[in-house]
Structures are given as C-alpha cells and as structure tokens.
Simulated scan of single mutants.
Amino acid sequence: MEQITELVPDGALVPLLDQVNGWLQAAIAALPRLGIALCVVLLTALAVKVAHGIIRRIGSRARMRRNLIDVLQLLSSVTFWLIGGLIALTVVFPTVTPARALTTLGLGSVAIGFAFKDTFENFLAGILILLREPFQIEDYIHCEGVEGQIEAITIRDTHIRQTDGQLVVVPNAELFHNPVTVRTDRDVRRATLICGVAYGENVDDAREVIEAAVRKVDLVRDDVRDIQVFAKAFGASSIDFEITWWTGSRPVDIRASRDQVVASVKAALDEAGIEIPFPYRTLTVNEPIPVAPVRGDQAER
C-alpha cells in the first residue's frame, strides 16, 4: 500500500478505489443477470438439439434427402440462437431493448451482405434448390455447357460428374438463374435416327421393314410409346427416313439403343434387298477430253 501511495498523487487514490469498488459492486449486482443469461444460452442449446432430433426423425419418415435435412437443421439453429441471443443480451444489459438490438443487427447484416454478396446468393439459391427439388442426386442434367450426373448438392454449390469422368463444381446461383435440362426427370427418353434408302426402292415397303427391325431391339420401349418412322426429306442420293423410339433416359441407354437400332435396321434392309445408297457424284465437262493412245514401251514404264 505504501508503494501504491508513493506512485499515485495525493488525493487521487480515494477516487480510484471508489471506482474499483463501484465496478466490483456492479459485477456482483450483475451476477444474477449473468446467471439467468447463462441459463438462457443453455436452454437455447438444448432447444437446438431437440429441434435437430425432431427434424431428423421427420425427415427420415418423409424420406427427405440428407442435404435437405441439413438445411432445415441449419435454419432451426439460426432461428433459435438468434432468439436466445437477443433474450440473453437484454437480460445482461437491461438498457438494450430487443428493437434496438435488432436495429444494430440489421445494420451489421447489410454491411456483411454487401461484403459477401455472392456467397449469400449461392447460399440462398442452394436452400431454394433443396426445398423445390427441381433435380435430385444421380440425375443427369445440362446447364450452360455443363452436362453430367449430380453427385452432391450442398448449400453453396452442386457437384456434377461429366460423362468423361471430370468433376465440375457449379455455384448454385448458376443453376438457379439459368435454364437446366433434367435428362433423367422421367425413366424414358426419345431417341432419333436418320436412315436413307435409294430412290428406286418402294417407300412403303422400306418403312415397314425399318419399323419391324426397330421393334426387335430389346432396349426399345415400345410399351411406353409407339415407334414412329416417317419419310422426312429427299436427300442428295436417298429418301431419308426419320426413326424415333423410346428407351432409357440415361446417356448410356441412348447410345446403346442407337447402336442396336442401327445394326438391326442395316441387317433388315440387307435381308429385304433394299439398298442403302452411297453418295453419288456426276461430273459434267463442257468440252471433250482428248484421249491419246499409249504405246507399249510407255505403258511398261
């Protein structure tokens, strides 16, 4: 005490001790409020845990996707902690009203929103995609030049595995703002093939042969919709038929069924004696081409 008295000027020690004493009294007086605020925080944590369990059970019974359950749990956590934090803040600092706290929080949120605009845009787009479910995991989609199978949908981005094995991570905002083609939205998809026959062949006979050949293919789903074979156009060296049929919606299903249809149609047309012509070219010259005889010694050379 003597050393402190020597360091502090005369008359200044008493106000300093009074100030420290006031701080201690204020802290002691605030202990009940701190205890209540701590209880509010613990109750908030318990409520969050209970809400997560309820959402998990409801999601499992409703067969919701895991990512959608995570989103609902995240939203419940943010809601409970926001309410619990405001209550605890007003308990510790009685002069801070919930309206004033929300105003301060709103101003801070605006500043943070401008700083992380793209991040929040992808976050909100991810929530809307998971809630609306325009496509699901394992669907094949096409969007802005990216085509492949969806492997994961997170809050921020979507993982798409292309058919060549490469992984593309697409921000959710891109999928939300741009048109997305979901190729596997249904179990079947239509495939198209163009086949030409010679001009000398009978069109009706060729149509019947082609249709019968397509029906023999195992991957063709004629039980869903009927096969269609139409004479489409007069080609350069053939009459072109447009062949359409339904098969599986995956890209490998389209390629495999087209392979079998081409082989079946080719074999059927060959068996029926219907020609699939090669392109013909006719050359016309304005003047006769002189032809000179070749002597034997030149021919040997």
Rank of each mutant, 00 (worst) to 15 (best):
D226N: 03
D18R: 10
T103V: 09
L46W: 09
D118W: 11
P15G: 06
N286V: 03
A267L: 13
E144W: 08
I150T: 00
D185A: 15
L46Y: 12
A198L: 01
Q260D: 15
E300G: 04
R132S: 09
R66Y: 13
L13C: 01
V220K: 01
A29K: 08
T97P: 02
Y199E: 08
T5C: 02
A26D: 14
L13K: 02
A256H: 15
I112W: 07
V50R: 12
P32L: 06
L124A: 11
A88Y: 07
Q25F: 14
V224L: 08
E271H: 06
Q260K: 15
I276M: 14
P98C: 06
L269Q: 11
A256I: 07
L89P: 01
R100T: 02
V168M: 14
Q260F: 02
G126M: 04
R132H: 08
G22Q: 11
Q149G: 01
I227P: 07
V252N: 12
A272Q: 05
D270G: 04
S76H: 00
R183Q: 13
L13S: 09
N67S: 12
H177Y: 14
L13E: 07
A29C: 08
A292Q: 11
A198E: 05
R190D: 12
T284E: 15
L74A: 15
Y140N: 03
A299I: 13
V252Y: 14
V229Q: 06
A51L: 10
D205Q: 09
L128S: 09
A292C: 09
E2S: 04
F114W: 07
A256L: 05
T104H: 10
V91M: 02
R161S: 04
H177M: 12
T5R: 11
I210P: 06
G248P: 01
S249C: 05
L72H: 00
L38F: 15
R132P: 03
E174W: 00
R255K: 15
D164P: 00
V71R: 12
R100Q: 07
T158S: 04
V40L: 15
A111D: 04
L43T: 13
I4G: 03
V170G: 08
Q298F: 04
F278L: 15
T247H: 03
H159E: 09
G145A: 01
I83A: 05
Q73S: 10
F114C: 05
R281L: 03
A292W: 13
V217F: 05
R65Q: 08
P293A: 05
V285F: 15
I87M: 12
L13V: 00
R295W: 06
R56N: 09
I254L: 14
D297V: 11
R255H: 15
K266T: 09
C39Y: 13
V209E: 00
L7C: 01
